[in-house]
Design a protein around this nucleic acid. Sequence first.
RNA 1: GCCAAGGUGGCAGAGUUCGGCCGAACGCGUCCGCCUGCAGAGCGGAUCAUCGCCGGUUCAAAUCCGGCCCUUGGCUCCA
Length: 496
Amino acid sequence: MTLSVTNTLTGERERFEPRNDDEVLLYVCGLTVSDEAHLGHARLWLHADVMHRWLDHEGYDVRHVENVTDVNEKIVARTGEPGVGDTEPEVAEFFTSTVIRDMRGLNLKRAEVYPRVSEHVPEIVDLVETLIDRGYAYESNGSVYFDVTTFDEYGKLSNQDVESIESQGTDVARSEKRHPADFALWKAGAVAPADVAEHRDPDLDPIEEPGGETWDAPWGAGRPGWHVECSAMSMTHLDDTIDIHAGGRDLVFPHHENEIAQSEAATGREFARYWLHVGLLQTAGDKMSSSLGNFLTVDDALAEYGVDVVRTFYLATAYRSEQTFGEAEMQEAEERWDRLERAYDAAVDACDSTDAYATVADEDLRDAVPEARASFRAAMNDDFNVREAMAALLELGTAVNRHLDTRDHYDYRALREAVETLEEFAGDVFGLSLGDGAADGGDVSVAEDLVELVLEVREAEREAGNYGRADDLRDELTALGIEVQDGDEGPTYRFE
RNA sequence: GCCAAGGUGGCAGAGUUCGGCCGAACGCGUCCGCCUGCAGAGCGGAUCAUCGCCGGUUCAAAUCCGGCCCUUGGCUCCA
């Protein structure tokens, strides 16, 4: 069973064959740290994370690099905001710290490195010089532009002709360019007040002076253009040619198109073998976007739903499709996650119970485990079809529940294999926290003792026929986030 | 206008790469049954889809071909 992926470059599903048999170079286009991350950004992170985890699981050594763009007009636009920072580096550092907090909160596997643009200016300057030397770029008025007419394959990623691409940039920039589709590799000087005005909070004082960091270059002081960073950092930290370059679908043009042009023009080699693009998160018809103001931050979402529900939400849709965010969708995610976790918990409890016998065999459950494993692997290898893979896990959960429901004595071996399968796939590959649901803060053991004490009292009331009192106790526990379930062998409970 | 991605049941959303296992998955919702003092969870069952429209190819199409309609994204900062 081999992995196949949908490559934007060819528009087709292709068998995934990395440059080296056992190593995958993965570059993820990270975000510009000019604001807190929202659920749209997190969707890319989650899918990149699951890809990383799956490749890991399949035995590849994954070298994952994810950039942090800390040089940008929008960051300059926020300088002087109370509590954020006075300079471009301060603002960038502030939001970078929130991004790292969010990534941890989402239980993402760490990338090998999170390179910052501000620390790679020398590499960027080298790249620009190379492009000028090789005749692909030209200096104009202190800025440097990539000449799209010199790169025959320009437009190959987004399937466009150079002539059909409308001109980019401001009037000033256009006047400096030879071809309207040429794009900036280096911008002369600091950021002009006019360039930040549209990003500036109208309640704050407008920025009057040119701002932001500048660096010296052979063409004079200035700032990197907004596409070179990824080329330079990808080649610096990985290689001239990498295996997977992932990003949001909105980056196909111009960002990724320009990355290909500048990288391949500079090295003469293929820049990335597989281009994977994650569909955008929609909210009620529109994409979720900072500029539209219709977003929920990662931090708020984690506080409201918890990491497992948020991850399960993303696992409900294949990465390349668009996904809709809404209250109903989050509730469904909660149900799905609860269902999976309950089945897992039930299987663990059954394994530990005295009804689990080594001599009992349930062929249905024994068959269900390898079936689930095979389905999961097939789904993941089919362009990371996470929803299909989750379906396999949920079906295994149903098989476990059915076994527990219909048998007096449990098949220990089959249950143990089911538990291990869920831990391996739902836990390691999907990054869900099975088995440690109550482990987030507080003195859990005391809490458990107290709950059990309350339940003992409640049982006494039930036996005495005082159901009203018993129901009150249950309601109060529910209000505290403790779900009580009465079964044949007394009550069980779990923390929400 | 140009480029791209989509249009599948009440919702959400797989399946389209390699046509038949799709009489359409998983889940949510609704209804019934089992279980239960009740509830919940679980299990069983039911409900619910002429797979955007029209035409074509084929023994066979959600899946291939052609045309059309609609939605979203990109072409300006954007994951």
